[in-house]
Design a protein around this nucleic acid. Structure first.
Length: 418
RNA sequence: GUGGGUGUAGCUCAGUUGGUUAGAGCGCCGGAUUGUGGAUCCGGAGGUCGCGGGUUCGAAACCCGUCACUCACCCCA
């Protein structure tokens, strides 16, 4: 038996209504905030991701699905959505169009990780990117959209955490100070954090090991190295969040895993979600467009993990939609008439179905019941000779005879008026 | 990449200190007098017990290996 490869999932018909509900809700809220959908390719040239996400990040170093095209050029399945969106923004010279430009996207992403709860190799994200506005209200707008969207989905135990990462220069100034401190307490840190002192010192502050937390309790804070401009921006962001009533927690240790973030970084976590409890995250990335060859365009955005939302979504929110009319045709003549009737119903917009295997009326009715049909049309040879069919209301069990030629119109009105 | 847990019917799971044709519930198909669903009753189909080796007169069970799934580390949405 050929099986799906590790870390990818089939979405079976029973669960697809939940996913459609999530995606529709996300698009609706994005539209409400003025974001419009962009669809960019699933794969891109490898250097796009290396240059935007950061060559030394885990994603680029060991998680990308990279392969050679037939001409030998290196391609990569997208591990996130921002890089491709920024590439499209630059390539189509959208910076020349009126700003701001606000995009949203939804689709599969690929990272070669060990699967676990809430983490797959092919997973799905919904995200937004707002280009062209450095005003802190753009940060607030994006966080507000994220918060309202997740709240509307009635996910339990949501928390919004935010931090100020400052400008690149601020971090460049802070990093040596932090490294010096960490080297002093190195003996108290876990093995991972010792390695991180050189590779990614900011991450040490985000370590969950209790001893590391203790050891870094008095570490110099990034906040103290921030430039006045960075402080002002962040103060406006927090004031803006308060003004629109979005609850948040300051988390000075919050660090994002992608190199391109600056100033505002945020993350929404969800309780009861297992170890992978970040349901959505994002931040500002003012330097990225320029870094990828565009003009200096500020930007801010977020991404949410759809699998993680689906894990938390209450069972009851989405129901499948199915054909409401069942055609029960039995008998040699009636089977032929029934098939053309079925097609005519569908052609005129009546959602209808029929089980081609069923030979007895009993089998037909069982199937109609299973499909939760509202009406069943009885079509036997008796009916054919009379030119009428019996229409049974499956809930009230009331039956009436209707001329076969009148059935599509009759069922249309019955479905509308109940 | 590193650990832990679990692999028996389509699904959820029983299966005693190793013992003969491997079970249940749900689901599926059919029947309960000829053309009326859901309930009930009856019947049926469906399994190389993840795979390979070993121990044994005998293995779903014990041992070794392997693969898959899963949770966690790591990382991230």
């Amino acid at each position: 038996m050929i099986k799906a490869i590790k870390g990818v999932k089939d979405l079976l018909p029973e669960e697809s209504p939940r996913w459609r509900f999530i995606e529709d809700t996300a698009r609706r809220w994005a539209l409400c905030y003025g974001f419009q959908e962009i669809r960019v390719p699933i794969f891109e040239t490898t250097t796009l991701f290396a240059r935007s996400i950061g060559a030394t990040t885990d994603i680029v170093e060991k998680e990308m699905y990279t392969f050679a095209d037939r001409d030998g050029s290196s391609l990569t399945l997208r591990p996130e959505g921002t890089a491709g969106t920024v590439r499209a923004f630059i390539e189509h010279n959208r910076a020349a169009d009126p700003r701001p430009q606000k995009y949203c996207y939804v689709g599969p992403m690929f990272r070669h990780e060990r699967p676990q709860a809430g983490r797959l190799r092919q997973f799905h994200q919904f995200g937004v990117e707002s280009f062209g506005v450095s005003d802190p209200r753009a940060d607030v707008e994006v966080m507000s959209l994220l918060w309202r969207l997740l709240s509307d989905l009635t996910l339990p135990g949501l928390t919004l955490e935010i931090n100020n990462l400052g400008y690149t220069e601020d971090r460049a100034q802070y990093t040596p100070i932090l490294v010096a401190f960490l080297k002093n307490v190195e003996s108290r840190l876990c093995g991972n954090c010792r390695r991180r002192i050189e590779a990614n010192p900011l991450r040490v502050l985000d370590c969950k090991v209790p001893d590391c937390r203790l050891a870094t309790e008095d570490a110099p804070r990034l906040t103290d190295s921030l430039s006045p401009a960075a402080r002002d921006h962040f103060e406006s962001v927090t004031a803006g969040l308060q003004s629109v009533g979005i609850p948040f927690h300051l988390n000075p240790r919050l660090v994002r895993g992608l190199d391109y973030y600056c100033l505002t970084a945020f993350e929404v976590t969800c309780s009861h979600l297992g170890a992978q409890n970040a349901v959505g995250a994002g931040g500002r990335y003012d330097g990225l467009v320029e870094q990828l060859g565009g003009s200096a365009v500020p930007a801010v955005g977020f991404a949410v993990g759809l699998e993680r939302i689906a894990l938390m979504l209450p069972e009851t929110v989405a129901l499948p939609t199915r054909p409401r009319v069942y055609v029960a045709a039995f008998g040699t003549q009636a089977v032929k008439v029934g098939f053309t009737l079925l097609d005519e119903l569908r052609r005129t917009g009546v959602p209808a179905d029929m089980d081609f295997r069923a030979a007895s009326l009993k089998a037909h009715l069982r199937q109609a019941d299973r499909l939760e049909a509202l009406y069943t049309i009885f079509l036997g040879d008796d009916e054919i000779t009379k030119g009428v069919a019996t229409v049974r209301n499956m809930q009230t069990k009331a039956q009436e005879d209707i001329a076969i030629s009148q059935l599509p119109a009759a069922l249309q009105t019955r479905l509308i008026h109940g």
